[in-house]
Nucleic acid binder design. Structure first.
Length: 577
RNA sequence: GCGCGGUUAGCUCAGCUGGAUAGAGCGUUGGCCUCCGGAGCCAAAGGCCACAGGUUCGAAUCCUGUACCGCGCGCCA
């Protein structure tokens, strides 16, 4: 329908480039991108291109900037351009054009983003929990960050395949089978399947310490499973099904969606041929009975003198083997332009090795390892659950929802019990997700109950609150307020809000480029915060019809941006809370 | 030992790949409900951006070194 729209930033970049050419500085490969000045008094956008050009041309940056401003083509979007300081070019947008630009993004209901990803495909691999183990807070980061990236890329037009590469194969199953046959508590399994499996697994570990022969039994059971023994296969199936059922319940609650769930077991038949092939290619060698791929200085400093094991001396494959087979499968199946992996930082070396090995094997693919920092527990307060184990994910969600319920009951007692329960769920889960997503993924994160459960300040409830206020205004006005062309920016608070809203598309694109949902989160907080000031300064209902109309449109735009943005983070907007 | 990463306000964190006076939230202090939702708004205090050099018009950001901290380095994933 509508042509792909330029972002403000793209539009201005083009103008500045033209100005540079017209001023005689030619086209060159000096990167230019206007940025947002720290102080709004310095304009809506600012370019420091004159500094760079000045350096290249060995001339005074201020003179270059002056020449560029002189040569800047007239444009409906630009109200003024002036040289400032040692050579900045400060650009101020024309109010009418700004309003028009904003309205062009609003199609009645939603907010339209540009589609730079149209025609492109990516596979994104995230969450990937292990069968027979309970999901704990450690799984939150991969799951939440991966899901947000999936949503962000999809919103920009990418075809995205979200693949849950679950750990459903390997040596843990032999142990589990031995433990199952000896110590199963059937009632406990019926009541809480994964809990019982986890108990059995831990029990096996304890017993095996006293009696190492158990390990041999476990190895034998694993081998039987891997060679297709019907009894063990049936048992394995049971473990997998029980675990998936529980995972799905958690994903449902988190609003996390996968397109496919292809675990490690899916690639079993490919492993032997892959290892043989790599050996035949001369890329791997046998060493102490195992098969390894060596890396040298030509593979980069970080990989030099490291190696990747792809077959153990007992003949079993490893996860590196599976990862390589998985790359091959994904390339064959989807021909993606990009394959992204969302895992913690500890797997950095591993994935560098897998990527390098895949390239050696001739797989032409563009990998992206989105790694995130470690989750640490807040100082001293070892946040252990009753069992003493790591924090269980469901318990964390329950606690947050409970806390939210208390706030909802206190503030919205007039709503029905059912409605309050729904609000508490959305608020609690949203708060947990946002606490993670608002942080740079690469930083380590401290698990801090106070922060996770907070409902004030830079939190999901704050965004939701701003959105609910918008909705409340529409209810009071008895209409949703959207009239094309109807925004006039009179008050400074209106203008600040409009500029921010209009920047949304470029913000989302930047978040995608950097693989960082926190870029979106930051922007949403700024929008909600600016809206709160606007709300305080500018009355909407009861003003003159023209002003009311204009402000209703602005509120409509705010709601659309907040709604779109929260959806990108997987946070559920609420009409009331 | 080698490699990778980190160090920004009392606490938790941003900081747009080199731009003007380094920003938020929480906490602290002080204001704001004749007003569309106070889960809110406004303001103040709080900084040797770990340290030392270097690069240049300009450095929290890039380079080198140092100190602490974390993580990774063949039969787990």
């Amino acid at each position: 329908m509508e042509p792909p729209m330029q972002t403000l930033s793209e539009h201005l970049t083009e103008l500045i480039r033209q100005a540079a050419v017209a001023a005689g500085y030619g086209d060159n490969d000096v990167p230019l991108e206007p940025c947002v000045p720290t102080d709004p008094r310095n304009g809506d956008y600012q370019s420091n291109y004159a500094f760079r050009l000045g350096k290249a041309a060995r001339s005074n940056p201020r003179a270059v900037a002056a020449a560029m401003v002189e040569a800047l083509p007239a444009d409906p979007l630009v109200a003024s351009a002036e040289v400032a300081g040692p050579g900045f070019i400060n650009l101020r947008l024309r109010d009418e054009a700004l309003a028009a630009h904003l309205l062009a993004r609003l199609d009645g209901e939603g907010f339209t983003l540009s589609q730079p990803g149209a025609g492109k495909t990516m596979v994104i691999d995230f969450s990937s929990p292990n069968i027979a183990k309970r999901m704990h807070v450690g799984h939150l980061r991969s799951t939440i960050i991966g899901d947000a990236l999936r949503r962000i890329y999809a919103s920009l037009g990418w075809r995205v395949i979200a693949d849950n590469h679950i750990g459903d194969w390997g040596t843990q199953f032999g142990k589990l089978m031995v433990a199952w046959r000896r110590w199963l508590d059937q009632d406990a399994f019926d009541a809480d399947a994964v809990g019982e499996l986890q108990r059995l697994y831990q029990l096996f570990g304890a017993k095996a310490e006293e009696d190492p022969s158990l390990e041999d039994l476990a190895r034998a059971e694993t081998a039987k499973l891997q060679s297709g023994d019907p009894e063990n296969t049936a048992l394995w199936r049971r473990f997998v099904d029980a675990s998936l059922e529980e995972f799905d319940a958690v994903y449902d609650r988190l609003g996390v969606v996968f397109d496919v769930t292809l675990g490690e077991s899916h690639y079993q038949s490919r492993l032997s041929p892959l290892v043989e092939g790599v050996l035949a290619q001369g890329l791997a060698e046998e060493d102490q009975g195992a098969v390894i791929i060596r890396f040298g200085p030509e593979d980069g400093k970080a990989l030099a003198d490291t190696l990747l094991l792809i077959r153990k001396s007992d003949g079993a494959a490893l996860y590196g083997t599976t990862d390589l087979a998985t790359v091959a499968y994904r390339m064959e199946t989807w021909q993606p332009d990009l394959i992204a992996y969302v895992t913690d930082v500890r797997q950095r070396l591993h994935f560098s090795q897998v990527f390098a090995a895949a390239r050696k094997m001739g797989m032409a693919f563009t990998p992206e390892h989105v790694y995130f920092g470690m989750l640490r527990l807040a100082g001293g307060a070892i946040a252990a659950t009753r069992s003493g184990a790591v924090l269980n994910l469901v318990d964390v969600l329950d606690t947050a929802v409970e806390r939210a319920r208390g706030v909802v009951d206190g503030k919205s007692g007039h709503l029905s019990d059912q409605e309050r329960a729904g609000i508490a769920e959305a608020v609690g889960v949203g708060a947990i997700k946002y606490a993670d997503l608002s942080q740079n993924p690469q930083s380590d994160i401290v698990f801090d109950w106070d922060k996770m459960l907070s409902m004030e300040g830079n939190t999901a409830p704050y965004l939701m609150y701003a959105y609910a206020r918008c909705m409340s205004i529409f209810r009071k006005a008895d209409r949703d307020g959207f009239v094309p062309g109807g925004i006039a920016l009179e008050h400074p608070s209106e203008r600040s809000l409009a500029v921010l809203l209009a920047r949304t598309p470029e913000v989302v694109e930047r978040a995608a480029e950097l693989w960082r949902p926190n870029v979106v989160a930051d922007h949403l907080f700024a929008v909600a915060n600016t809206f709160a000031s606007f709300y305080h300064d500018c009355r909407v209902i009861g003003e003159s019809p023209e002003v009311e109309q204009s402000r209703l449109s602005l509120v409509r735009a705010t709601a659309a941006v907040l709604e779109q943005g929260m959806k990108l983070l997987g946070i559920q907007p609420l009409d009331r809370m």
